[in-house]
């Protein structure tokens, strides 16, 4: 199985720890954990991860704005939204912004693994 460098962006301490543990379990490297959208844009430039998992609701800048910021810097960036939002409109907004896919909170490790494989298969 391929191993990727992944950046986790989530203001929730529990969710970021859980996603990090799942990614380690799946053999990936977590290169950075960010708590804000602005931090994510800065750290993306430094770490250039293969993939980003991005929360939508964060205090300073939401995950959709942060995704747009990352894609302005790297149009090929691969971002998966991780959200508790059950509403279709929010998912559509995220995908319109350039996210490659999404998983719902609470995160299921199998669904996260499948989404990573699906997103990384695509150019």
């Amino acid at each position: 199985m391929a191993i990727y460098n992944i950046m986790v962006v989530d203001d929730s301490l529990l969710t970021s720890k859980k996603i990090t543990a799942m990614l380690h379990e799946q053999g990936h490297r977590v290169v950075q954990v960010c708590k804000t959208g602005a931090e994510a844009i800065d750290e993306y430039r430094f770490h250039r991860p293969n993939l980003v998992t991005m929360d939508i609701t964060m205090p300073d800048m939401d995950g959709i704005a942060a995704t747009i910021g990352i894609l302005e810097h790297d149009p090929k960036a691969k971002v998966i939204m991780v959200t508790s939002h059950g509403q279709e409109q929010m998912v559509v907004r995220a995908l319109d912004a350039g996210a490659r896919g999404y998983v719902l909170k609470p995160v299921n490790p199998v669904k996260l693994k499948e989404m990573i494989e699906q997103v990384m298969r695509r150019p």
């Binding site: 929730s12 959200t83 508790s84 939002h85 059950g86 509403q87 409109q89």
Partner: peptide, 15 residues
């Protein structure tokens, strides 16, 4: 986390 999950999931019913 619990508040965020519950209200987040509620949006599916309320949107």
């Amino acid at each position: 986390e619990v508040a965020n999950l519950v209200v987040g999931h509620c949006t599916a019913d309320l949107a």
